[in-house]
Design a binder for these strands. Sequence first.
DNA 1: CTGAAAGCGCTTACAG
DNA 2: CTGAAAGCGCTTACAG
Lengths: 358, 358
Amino acid sequence: MRHDDSSAPETTRSRRVTVTDVARHAAVDRSVVSRVLTNDPRLKVREETRQRVLSAVRELGYIPNAMARSLRTSHTGTLALFLPDFANPVYAEIITGAEAAAAARGYVLMTGSSSTAGGTAEAYLKLLGQGRVDGLLLAGEALSADAQRALSVAGIPHLLLNRRMRGSHRYVTLDDERAAGMAVEHLVELGHERIAHLAGPSGADTARRRKAGYLAAMKAAGFPPDSSLVVAADYTPVGGAEGMVTLLRADPPPTAVLAANFVAAIGALSAAWSAGVSVPDELSIVTIHDSPLAGFTVPALTAVRMPLQALGARGVELLLTSPPDAEVTEILSGPIELVVRSSTAAPAGRTSRNAGSR
Amino acid sequence: MRHDDSSAPETTRSRRVTVTDVARHAAVDRSVVSRVLTNDPRLKVREETRQRVLSAVRELGYIPNAMARSLRTSHTGTLALFLPDFANPVYAEIITGAEAAAAARGYVLMTGSSSTAGGTAEAYLKLLGQGRVDGLLLAGEALSADAQRALSVAGIPHLLLNRRMRGSHRYVTLDDERAAGMAVEHLVELGHERIAHLAGPSGADTARRRKAGYLAAMKAAGFPPDSSLVVAADYTPVGGAEGMVTLLRADPPPTAVLAANFVAAIGALSAAWSAGVSVPDELSIVTIHDSPLAGFTVPALTAVRMPLQALGARGVELLLTSPPDAEVTEILSGPIELVVRSSTAAPAGRTSRNAGSR
DNA sequence: CTGAAAGCGCTTACAG
DNA sequence: CTGAAAGCGCTTACAG
């Protein structure tokens, strides 16, 4: 920390306690202190000596210097996760899962936003230097192939989380196609035929996969593709609202919409309400990704719940266990479930094919 | 990173490039490389030599080891922010502001959740060791006075963000009292008299300050305290919904509610809707803290916008500029503004005192 | 059972 | 203008 050092009295910050201080205090060598503290199994030490060391540690309030230890061991015990946007509640779950998995393995997970980082590999490297973290999880935003290569060359193990990228063979994702398919099937079972897709931004890999799942399920249900029923929207409330306005202009308008993203679905719900379109009576809305808020929108959103925590956890695991250059191309096969709430129903004048049961 | 080292071929991870390699390649001393890279102003070096160093750095793909540098300089360039819960959208804004301020000063901000950390100072210290970060921002959750002292003793500069604590003299908060007061005044101007408070959890410092602001404003408006109009609720949708159910049972029921928290307000909105109480016709709801989602709830939530990004930024600034043990007790005097949307209106059968203008 | 020594990769006074 | 040396605080083979 840089303060105005010139005015700070030298004595204010009492000199840092080091192994050497502890060793002197316990009348042993530094190496013994170190071994006691790291629980070196090869160390045979009299119990009495061990206690002497331990109480010296306590008395002096000794805390090992993490930098020195890392430099020596080339191991930091820290993992970093970069994501584009803390405002997207989807990431909260991923972080939770990743933090827990990291903790379980004795690592700390620190999260940062890549918008600050600048999103380029150079920016990440600047931030991280070398040796600052043992691994890097990159979620949700495109990193150029060049940037990717830079990370590889720098020798910082990394893994893409919840997205794939051309030229990268290290990622874990969820089965977005299947999730989108399940949502469409739900709407089809309810009796809907004009099912629209409020898709994600065209650049997003998750958006592409969800759209593919939507199209495949529509085809399987016997509905021909209709481009007026698909609209790209940012993963934001504004994006969702604007997309919804566009979709409502289709002629005839859709009776159901699959939103690719929870936050966009909130926007869509709001836009429908503003347009005087009643949900679910006139329009059903289902979203991908459940959220603690989904049960409390008006009306409560039907959602396809995906194992986001498991995704975060799996990312940590793979990052920690796979050799840094090995190919990792995993589609996490966790449970995907449809959580039916109040935003979906049979279309007006129709009862569902299947009484909506599931 | 620990892999199965026994099987990993030694040659896979090409030996790390160090200053020494660069020095050799550029035919200069390591110290020159170091000085060129840190832009040491005291270094007088021929331009040609500097270029030779720089191109050696490029050719070898040299990235300085952050641990070694930190150990030498006792400066990491990293700050950490711990918060209780990534799911609360309020924190997204604080993080954004803090990250930007950190970046502007050449620091990286890494965020972690204190639920994983365990919430105790010991846990933080375990995570951080010593020397891993230059400072620590602690948001939103109680840390015992003991824990606090432990951090001080360990010599890790820290600052409480958005909360105060008994025994701590280092914090920045927002002016929650004034925010709550403004919300109440808005409702009073609309003509409301039975104004309830969906307060935060009793343990939360922000909740206490908002409640105090609510009570003071009610008193100023000439309404006697009525305990049936105040209910404590967690800062969660479920908490807000449950609290709202309780409030609606008051006799006579309130015509307006001030929710202490945005996420709780979402729950309250949902509970009102479920109970068949129309917002804003029969019940006005105003919340503290605006959010990107607030404009898209049904109906859109009137909110008191507080400078959350500025709070995050100010926290970073104070952490970086105040001596580690100095007293810092700042109530950030940024702009607080009422954002009137559709969830507040004059009570039924009444027009506002002031035509709702503001 | 314990100690002395080397070295992780840097930066920075200091000497030339 | 550039180099040699010390040292940040640890851990870990190695020697006794």
